[in-house]
Amino acid sequence: MEINDEVAIRRQLVKAVRMLERIGILDMNGHFSFRLPKQDRFLINARAASRASLTVEDIVSCDLDGRVDEGMQEPPSEVHIHAAIYQRRPDVSAVIHSHPHWQTVLGIAGHPLRPVFSIGAFTTDFPVFEKSSLVNTRELAVELAEILGTSPVVQIRHHGNVVVGSGIEEVFAASVYLEENAKKQFYAASINADFHVLEGENLERTRESNWAPSIIRKAWRYHEEKARLAGSFQGIDSVGKGEA
Rank of each mutant, 00 (worst) to 15 (best):
I9T: 15
I9R: 11
R10E: 05
R11V: 07
R11D: 09
Q12G: 12
V14F: 02
V14E: 03
V14Y: 00
A16V: 07
V17E: 02
R18E: 09
M19A: 11
L20T: 08
E21P: 07
E21K: 15
I23P: 05
G24F: 01
I25V: 14
I25P: 04
N29K: 01
N29W: 12
G30K: 10
G30D: 15
H31E: 12
F32L: 09
S33I: 06
S33T: 15
R35K: 15
L36Q: 08
L36G: 12
K38A: 12
K38Q: 15
Q39S: 11
Q39T: 09
D40C: 03
R41N: 13
F42V: 11
L43Y: 06
R47W: 04
A48L: 04
A48I: 00
S50Q: 10
A52E: 14
A52D: 09
V56N: 10
V56C: 15
D58I: 02
I59H: 11
V60Q: 03
S61Q: 02
C62M: 03
D65V: 00
D65K: 10
G66P: 04
R67E: 14
D69G: 03
G71Y: 02
Q73L: 07
E74S: 06
P75L: 04
P76D: 02
S77Q: 14
E78R: 11
E78Y: 09
E78C: 08
V79G: 06
H80C: 07
H80R: 04
H80M: 08
H80W: 13
I81C: 05
H82C: 09
H82Q: 12
A83T: 08
A84T: 05
I85V: 13
Y86K: 08
R88N: 09
R89Q: 12
R89A: 14
P90K: 11
D91E: 15
D91M: 01
V92E: 09
V92A: 08
S93A: 14
H97S: 05
H99R: 00
H99C: 04
P100L: 13
H101W: 03
H101A: 05
W102L: 06
W102M: 11
Q103R: 04
Q103M: 13
V105H: 07
L106D: 01
L106S: 01
L106R: 04
G107S: 04
G107W: 03
I108S: 08
I108G: 00
A109W: 06
A109Q: 13
G110F: 02
P112L: 02
P112E: 06
